[in-house]
């Protein structure tokens, strides 16, 4: 859950790289701070004496309207959020001094997706998705419906009005955020790549 720079320490010099993992799947009963992503101290600060109760708002306060969504419409959600599952982690070089907010690591190809030819109700295309990683690795996956939908929740960005804004800190830093979480989106589909990548020729594209 840290920025990518941390993971990159162990990354080899390849432009992008895929590392498989086979961690066990333990279940734990999480504490409030783990569930909400809020710090326990701030939760306590807000609920001086009572046990903490964090509101979970069913809709986001500031839903960003997405730009053009390049994924097939089935995977579209109102906020544009989608789920991608990989067996492993994506490594890429550190974005040192990069003016860009992101690093391109590969591309997704839906080789069977062709609504013009197969009609909008065609679902066969879901059976195959390629993820080209860097120049010479390819993962084969599919689009799957989630057994149960996932709510994507995050800390709600609201700032108390009553806190002293002046002084040295000033601005947003000086305000204390209200401890609330919100459901940003409900996602019903995911793109899954459950097998390891296979080597492909650099020029082979599009399946």
């Amino acid at each position: 859950m840290h920025g990518p720079a941390k993971r990159v320490a162990s990354a080899p010099p390849t432009p992008s790289h895929f590392q498989a993992s086979n961690a066990p799947t333990p279940t734990i009963l999480p504490e409030l701070s783990i569930v909400t992503g809020l710090s326990l101290d701030s939760i306590r600060h807000q609920n001086c004496f009572a046990m903490p109760t964090i509101p979970l708002h069913p809709r986001p306060l500031n839903a960003s309207s997405p730009t053009e969504n390049p994924l097939p419409p089935l995977l579209h959600t109102p906020t544009g959020l989608a789920l991608l599952e990989l067996q492993g982690t994506i490594h890429f070089p550190p974005p040192t001094a990069s003016p860009l907010p992101s690093t391109q690591v590969g591309k997704l190809v839906f080789p069977l997706y062709n609504p013009a030819l197969n009609g909008p109700d065609d679902t066969k295309w879901m059976k195959r998705v390629y993820f080209y990683v860097g120049q010479n690795q390819r993962m084969t996956g599919e689009v799957k419906k989630l057994g149960k939908p996932f709510a994507v929740i995050r800390k709600r960005e609201t700032y108390g009005e009553d806190v002293d804004v002046g002084g040295v800190e000033g601005g947003r830093e000086g305000k204390r955020a209200k401890e609330e979480v919100e459901v940003v989106e409900i996602v019903r589909w995911k793109i899954v790549f459950s097998s390891r990548p296979e080597p492909v020729g650099g020029s082979e594209e599009g399946g």
Partner: peptide
């Protein structure tokens, strides 16, 4: 065991 990523256009 797998990584789950949330993506946005």
């Amino acid at each position: 065991s797998n990584s789950l990523f949330v993506t946005q256009p």
